[in-house]
Each structure stands twice: as C-alpha cells, then as structure tokens.
Write a protein that binds this DNA or RNA. Structure first.
Lengths: 341, 341
DNA sequence: TTGTATGCGTTATCAC
DNA sequence: GTGATAACGCATACAA
C-alpha cells in the first residue's frame, strides 16, 4: 500500500475503520483512550493508524466538541520587543497545555483591534488574550457581551470589571524615580507615554508619588509627552534642551524612550550619568547590552504572558456562571540599576 | 427579543432561517452574496442576521470547504526582534488577504519545530511559513510528503527543492566587509553565527569573498563562532583580546552580536570606531538608536514576511499539480553606514 | 427563486 | 465490547 500518492486525500477515521475491519467509532474510542474497548482491538487500531500515518482533524473535532483548543491573542505592537516577549510567554504555556494561538496585531489601532476580535470570535477561539489599545472600550464590551473568556495583558481598564494581568506600573515608576531622588536629583524630567494607556497614566502617577515622598514639588513643565518610540524620547530631550529646562535626570516611560533620550543627550555633549542620569522602564534585553547599560525597571514580560495564559485557561475550564472573575493580578516590578544612573 | 442571555447559544444559520421564515440555505446564499436569490429575501435575511448579530462559524465553514483561511507560522525565536518583524509582515498581509495565522515558536529546537508542524497539519492550515531550525530537514520533508504548501523564510536548504524567501546573505556580508576594507582595514575579525543555518554559512562566505577581492589572505583564526546572542559577541571579543589577536575591525553575524562586541571593546577601553570599527547585520531598529549608532546591513524584514506570505498564498490558490515551485526569491540587502565604522 | 438532502470528520448517545 | 445513528454549522448538488 502506497501511503499518500500525489494529491492524496487525507486519511480519516473511516479509512482506519475499513482497514482494521471495525466500526468508525470504535476507532475513535480506541484512539482517544476511552474505556470499553478491548486491548486487542485497541492495539490493532493503533497499529493501523500508525501505519496510515493518521492525524486527527482538529477542525472537525472542534466543530463537534464546541471547543477548538485555540487561544486568540491580539497584541498592540508585535514589532516591539516588549510585546514580542509577552507573546513568547503566552505561546509557551499555550503549547504546553495543548493549545494553539491565533495571533493578531492591532498596531495600536482601534479599527484593527475590533476587526481582529471579530475574526477570533468567528474562529471559535476558546478565549482571548489582549493588550488593549485603550482607545475605546467597545471591543472589550463586545467580548463580554458575547461571553468570550478574556484576559487583559499589560494594560487594564479601571472602570471595567475584566480580568487582567499587569505589572505594578505605579510602584515601578515610584521605584525608578525614588532611586533618582536618592542619588540626589531634584530636577527630574519625565518623558511620558501615550496617556490613553493605563500603564502611562500609572507610571506618571508613580513619578508624582516619588516626588511627593521626597517633598519635591511637582511641576507640569517637567513632564513631556511622547509616542513611546525612541524618536519620541529623542525629540522630547531636544525640546527640553531648546526650552532651557534645567534637569539633572530623566525618567522615561520605556527603555525605547530612554534610548532616544540618551542619543539626544549625547549629541548635546552631555555625559551620562555624570551630567544627566537616565532611567528607563521595561528592561528589554538590549537595555543591558547598550553602552552605557540602561538602568531601568524590570518587568517579567514572559511571565506576564504565562500568568495571563494560565488565568485564561482557568476561566475556560469552568462554565459561564461559575466563572467568577479572577480579578486583577499584579506582578511586582524590580529596580535594575546599571550604568546610566 | 433579548439578544444573548447568560450562557446564550450562538446564533446560527438555522436561527436566522426560522426567524426570517426561509430555508437554511437560502440564508447561506443570501449572506454569501450568491446569485439566484431575490433582492427582497436577501434584504430580509441580512436584516435578520444583523439584528441577531450573526457571525459565521469559521470552523464549520472550514470543515465543509476543506479550507480554513489559516496560515501556520513557525518562527525560530519570537523574542528576537528580527523574527518578530518578519512575523509582523506575515501577519499584515495575511490579515489583508483574509487569512489568520496560527503562530508557533520553535525556539531553535528541532523537537519543538516538529511538534509545531504536526499540530499545524492537524489544524488543517492551508499552508505553512517557517524559519527552519535547520538542525534537520526531517520537518520539511514531512510537509512535502503531506503536500502541505510551504515557504521557507530567511533560511533555506541548498539541497532541498522548497520555495523560500531570503535575504542575499552572501552579498550583504560582502558589502559589509568590503566597506571595512575600503576604510583601510586589513585585520578584520569575523564573529560567526550558528553554522547550521544557511544565513551564517553564507555570511561567512561573503566575508571570505570580500577578503579575496581585496587580496587579503583568509585566516581561520580570525573567525570566532558565536551563538548569535549578544553575550556571544561579548565573549568572542574577550576571547580574541585575551588571545592577543590583532584586529582593527570586526564584522558580525548580527546586530545583537555587534552590540555585545561593542560592549566588550569599550570595557577594554577601545574606542569605536577610532580603535576598532564594528559592523553588524540585520539592521534591527535599535541599531540606529544606540550610541554609537551601529553600521550594519539592512534587511527588509517586514517585506521578507510579506513576500513570503504572498508567495504562499499564490501556491494555495492553485491545485497540487499545477503548483509549480515558485523557487527562491532573494531580497537585496543594503549597506547602512552609521557611526561604528 | 427557493427548499431538500447530503456530507465534511469527528464525538456522543444510544442500542445490541 | 461494539456498532449504528445523529449532530456540530455550514455549503453544495440537485430537485421542485
């Protein structure tokens, strides 16, 4: 018997059944380790299945069982190492638990996010992990309305009762700025991220907390909004320098912003950390590699993904009504002091 | 009528049919824009569908049509910005063409790669994009044997007739090293990547090409193998320094390796580029941001993904026999000179 | 123009 | 233990 000629139809349970001389569902139960099937026939069926190189059709199985063993993942920016690492964590635990992931990239755009979520629903994913754009709550409400298990990652909505796994952004930022204060800095610039994200708002709040704790008055002129890209950090520093703002340290929304800031600072012939200290946030792996190595706040990014995936899997396990909200899990950030402060 | 109570069953064609007072397949053709359905009933059906917030079940559709509109993507290292950007390109064109992607991460391990591919086959993906670990050809052969359309990305097998989209690694490396030569360097260290990958082998070859073109004898002692991580670049430089190898420039397998090299060089109080020039490969976005900005070879990573996805989609369009191999597409690299050379 | 019947590959519910 | 039979939701060949 020639296995799979050109354009060969895929082998199904029916083929095995015919070959083994048993019924189609005996094959099914034999292969799925169900009871009530003699060891003899089970062995026979398994042998035939192996010989024919049988692979179960998960699409058919998904239709029948109303369960696809698939998780939807929609990320705000796949090209950003932060999200890529989160994705890595998600993928790993999903794979370990026998789930596949369908990945979508919203590129921080509400329309793409909405589109992605609708596609995932149509594809009957068992649950969705999402780093929301936060430009609108619509998408999340839609998911809740359709009773699709959902966990927010890295960002969350204060006014929406949806499970989430986040880093303690406020605390992390407080740590970072507190560190600067401890080093004797009082004129600390803050390069903020997109204010529509919970992470940006909370990190800004942490900055204020740290100032307040040190008795340093908060000055709105010391915070500059950026787009969270390194070019944003670069532009912000140039802007601050041009405006004649005096500062000896700069705390950044992210490492990327920090890299841009460092670049602008250096071009202005300022030494780091002697003239100006710089601290980032996220601790992407390049932060440790760059010269000077960037002080920052470590987020366990892979872990974030893993924890979120486990939480979602837990929700999927139980039925709709007993599916109590697991609430918000907050992972502790960690200050990492390197060379830039 | 209350749309979706708690634990509501999903609305199907049958529900629309009942509500609209027509048959189930009239609904199907009305919704799918098929001909032979009066405009009146089509309008009615669409109205009812909208009112019930109907979403087609793509799993059922996939089973019926033997086509899932899904692409499998298996990446060697999701956390690596290079692959993340490739993934971004793939995802974007897939989404544009109405396809979803199931993402798997092989982490450069043969066992995970094999596992991933088998899962994708079971899930009936219409085709697979893969950056092979190249530790074994087994996986690819398996795919060919099963007649699953497949395109290799960024790496390829010289002895296997499989479509691929790659960067011209040999030419890119030749460009990079040629640039170093032109700057007057003759003692050029080469930090090699994992030799089992086609990209590493070809880039090493490009290094030799450039030396030969300049009449500089190749010395095996000038090439040091690394694991392609920045720590590898760091260690390689330390090793070279300790061994007393003399060099005025170092060409690297990747930007990551270059970053590590720069770090080691600086710790040894060597100035860049005055004492030692460094050039990378890939042009990940951080290369431009870092101080000194890294000279490198640009690969159109997103484009790589887009082209590969389009090629795969083209293969999926045609039937198995008329599906001639589209061959190997080679994208031109581009030398980017910044501050490190 | 519309409805009926069948099947995609699988699992589950029943008889035997 | 095992085997018919139905059903998951949809699309299609065919009948009306």
């Amino acid at each position: 018997m020639q296995p799979s000629k050109a354009g060969a139809r895929r082998v199904t349970l029916r083929d095995i059944a015919r070959e083994a001389g048993v019924s189609i569902n005996t094959v099914s139960r034999a292969l799925n380790g169900k009871p009530d099937v003699s060891e003899a026939t089970r062995a026979l069926v398994q042998a035939v299945a192996a010989q024919l190189d049988y692979r179960p059709n998960q699409v058919a199985r998904g239709l029948r069982q109303q369960k696809t063993a698939t998780l939807g993942v929609v990320l705000a920016d796949l090209a950003n190492p932060f999200f890529a690492e989160v994705a890595e964590g998600i993928e790993r635990t999903a794979a370990t638990e026998g789930y596949s992931i369908i990945l979508a990239n919203s590129e921080e755009r509400q329309s793409r996010e909405q589109q992605a979520v609708e596609t995932l629903v149509e594809r009957q994913v068992d649950g969705i992990l999402i780093t929301p754009t936060q430009r609108s709550e619509e998408t999340i409400r839609y998911l809740m309305h359709r009773h699709v298990p959902c966990v927010l990652v890295a960002r969350y909505f204060e006014n929406l009762d949806v499970p989430a796994v986040v880093n303690d952004d406020r605390e992390g930022s407080r740590l970072a700025v507190g560190h600067l204060v401890q080093r004797g800095h009082r004129d600390i610039l803050y390069l903020n991220g997109p204010p529509y994200t919970s992470s940006a708002r909370l990190r800004l709040q942490g900055y204020r907390d740290a100032l307040e704790a040190a008795g340093i008055p908060f000055r709105p002129s010391m915070v500059i909004n950026t787009d969270a890209r390194s070019s944003g950090g670069y532009a912000a520093i140039q802007q601050a320098l041009a405006a004649g703002i005096e500062f000896t340290a700069v705390a950044c929304f992210s490492d990327y912003v920090g890299f841009g800031a460092i670049r602008a600072l250096r071009q202005a012939k300022l030494r780091i950390p002697e003239d100006v200290a710089v601290i980032g946030y996220d601790d992407i792996d390049l932060a440790a590699i760059v010269e000077p190595a960037l002080s920052t706040v470590h987020i366990a990014k892979t872990r974030l993904g893993q924890v979120a995936a486990h939480m979602l899997l837990g929700m999927i396990g139980r039925s709709a009504q007993e599916r109590r909200h697991p609430g918000i899990t907050v992972l502790p950030p960690q200050l990492v002091i390197r060379e830039s402060t």
